[in-house]
């Protein structure tokens, strides 16, 4: 499934898809370290509004650390240090007064699904409650809408009061997505969401993401290169703690690459 938008721009390497769209996230010379170990160094890139930005690369390339630095999860890991600049909506995330507010605008989906030990309803209602929404009718609307958009509503609408942490893996992953959507996020970051999910669920979630793109910016870290090809407008290739290449997704897959390693990885020669 190739996005028609990207198809039109296959040749226009100098003019990427959403050039006109405002910049959502601007990364300048980002370096991430854990103690002495460097997880990522010298990354420069821009992510634009309403774009699906794919990140591919083998394990331990620094992909997850990249996501953690964006929503400032480094504050929970005393070992992790971040240098360089990350601008979210033009604001430097390193110098925010309220990083909780930043995080509340960024939805995150983890490799392993995490259904919180609350009811399914409360899993989705938690974020609105944290924002101060407590009216039952308002919450009902949000819960139904988010579960529907995450393609889970039909399966759970009759048991909203059972524990979210006891759902099956595929359902929990969709619940996690519904929870991320309940944040009403500007930016949705997915970290190898399909690792613990069956192929059918994966396809359903991918369809969901194509819909969500209209409302938010999506960063999709994936271990499946074909998933990036199916979904991403532009894709970055991370290897050995560096960002090797950023380009229109279709270019990377049709051989229009600057770096031989990107081609090798995409063609499955390593990884």
């Amino acid at each position: 499934m190739v996005n028609p938008n990207t198809n039109l721009n296959v040749e226009a390497e100098q003019v990427p898809v959403a050039e006109e769209a405002p910049v959502k996230l601007e990364i300048n010379d980002l370096t991430i370290k854990y103690g002495q170990h460097t997880a990522l160094k010298g990354v420069n890139l821009e992510i634009r509004e309403h774009e699906v930005f794919g990140i591919i690369g083998p394990a331990n390339a620094g992909k997850t650390s990249f996501l953690k630095s964006i929503n400032r999860m480094d504050t929970f890991d005393s070992n992790m240090s971040v240098e360089g600049q990350i601008k979210f909506n033009g604001l430097d995330v390193q110098n925010l007064n309220n990083i909780y507010a930043l995080r509340s605008r960024i939805g995150v989906v983890f490799p392993l699904p995490v259904g919180l030990p609350l009811t399914i309803y409360e899993n989705v209602a938690l974020s609105p409650r944290l924002r101060g929404i407590n009216s039952k009718s308002e919450l009902d609307i949000i819960v139904e809408r988010c579960l529907t958009r995450a393609a889970l509503w039909d399966e759970v609408k009759d048991r909203l009061n059972s524990l979210g942490s006891l759902l099956s893996g595929g359902q929990q992953q969709r619940l996690t997505i519904a929870r991320a959507l309940s944040q009403d996020p500007d930016l949705l970051m997915l970290d190898e969401f399909s690792i613990a999910v069956d192929p059918v669920t994966t396809m359903r979630i991918e369809d969901v993401l194509k819909e969500l793109k209209k409302d938010m910016t999506i960063i999709l870290v994936t271990n499946l290169v074909q998933q990036a090809r199916r979904l991403a407008d532009r894709t970055a290739f991370f290897l050995e703690n560096e960002c090797v290449e950023v380009g229109n997704t279709e270019d990377l897959f049709t051989g229009e690459v600057k770096d031989q390693r990107t081609r090798d990885y995409v063609e499955g020669k390593f990884g």
Binding site: N71, M73, F76, Y100, A101, L102, R103, S104, R105, I106, G107, V108, F110, L112, V114, L116, P117, L118, L126, S127, R129, L130, T176, R179, A180, Q183
Partner: peptide, 25 residues
């Protein structure tokens, strides 16, 4: 720990996470 991280990622403060997820459990 995954429950805490899920909450933190949603923008919950440490205390909100403790009060809503950790302590009840």
């Amino acid at each position: 720990q995954a429950f805490r991280e899920a909450c933190w990622n949603m923008g919950a403060t440490r205390w909100q996470t403790i009060r809503r997820i950790v302590l009840p459990n």
